[in-house]
Amino acid sequence: MPLSDQTRVEIREIIAKYPEPRSALLPMLHLVQSEEGMVSTAGIEMCAEELGLTSAEVASVATFYTMYKRRPVGKHLIGVCVNPQCGILGGDKLWETLTEELGVDNDETTEDGEFSVERIECQAACTYAPAVTVDWEFMDNMDPDKLRETLAKLRAGEEVVSTRGAVIRDFCATERTLAGLDDGLADSGDNNADEIMLAGLTYAKENGMSAPLPGGDE
């Protein structure tokens, strides 16, 4: 199926941001993926046309990066970080819960097309271990019960909010965000500084500690 003219217009806007057109390729691939839920041959060809590359050159890039999917992804992509910390602090158990609950294995999609699942190798959320992602939005400090509840809510179309503020949409919507398009969610969750980010600052304030600053500056 050919991609929309709107995607082509947005691709050109992305290219215009860079000194050299080819630099836009990674965000462009996120964008074509947002339309089709995968990077299809049509998506590769559109990127190649717009950049004056061969489709083989674009395909070589699309197949290198794990976030580009060459098979259709479900409505939601659920990721479980299974690397230590997360794996040891509960990620392995969460993976077991997820795959049992959905009856699918790594890189597979449920029959109803609702969920794809992926084992993640470190999500840079070690202080929030164990971490899970839904459409790459973080669900920090997860446990098996919360995970089952999250899946049920997603399935029922109820609102699920990331622990970092944003409302969960779907895989394709996140891909537009990753392409750099404004999704209007930048202010969700204030500055996102939760007790984990504030652990040191809180301790310092409660115990009268601060960095000495010159010239009476605050």
């Binding site: 990066y65 990721g79 993640i120 790459w136 939005e137 503020g165 996140t174 404004d182 930048a186 996102n192």
Partner: peptide
């Protein structure tokens, strides 16, 4: 790429 909340925050 795996951190949309940071990407949107930096763009904004």
């Amino acid at each position: 790429g795996e951190v949309p909340h940071v990407i949107r925050r930096m763009h904004a």
